[in-house]
Amino acid sequence: MAMSRTNPPKLGQSHITVQQRKNRLGQLAVWILLAALLVFVAIKLFQTSLGPVRSGKPPDFTITTFNDQTYTLSDLEGKIIVINFWASWCDPCKAEAADLEMLWRDYKDKDVLLLGIDYADTEKEALDYLSTWDITYPNGPDVGTTISQSYRIRGVPETYIVAQNGLLAKSFIGPINYENVEVVLEALLDK
């Protein structure tokens, strides 16, 4: 270490300082680049570690259903909203389809709204699916897959229940059954 330190290249003094300033600027640039990269990676790491939305105010969205009705989550405050992500190509979704429809028929008059969000699906098959399972609650495509992205869903089906106060009350990753949801809805309605 000492050896190389004491033998700097024999160049003019002023030249060295110019060179050193350049070096310092270059080093600063490298540090900034590294820091920026690490910040981006850290943010992404944080986001992946978050998992699906679990509590608090759920991300707002507007959805246009297959029969051209429009729903905006923030306009629906005061109601209990059950948001269900599904797709016609998803087998577990079929397992919960009948239960969801039954829930809708039992609760639609009690200020509960079921919203089906159709993820990365094709319209023809989606409509077939809705008629096969005789689904009557509003359903619409997730255009641009933006809603599913904001909810950070990992797959379908996933179900989110928003309470009357607009806060997320419960989320289900994977298929639901009638009883699971019923318990949550009854608890919210009792309040």
């Binding site: 490298v30 540090w31 590294l34 690490l38 990676v41 850290a42 790491l45 992946t48 570690s49």
Partner: peptide, 19 residues
């Protein structure tokens, strides 16, 4: 996997020391 945060710290430390 949950090894992300540990890995991130290691990367930050080794890259900084190397530089």
């Amino acid at each position: 996997s949950s090894i992300g945060p540990l890995f991130f710290i290691f990367i930050t430390v080794t890259f900084t020391i190397s530089l």
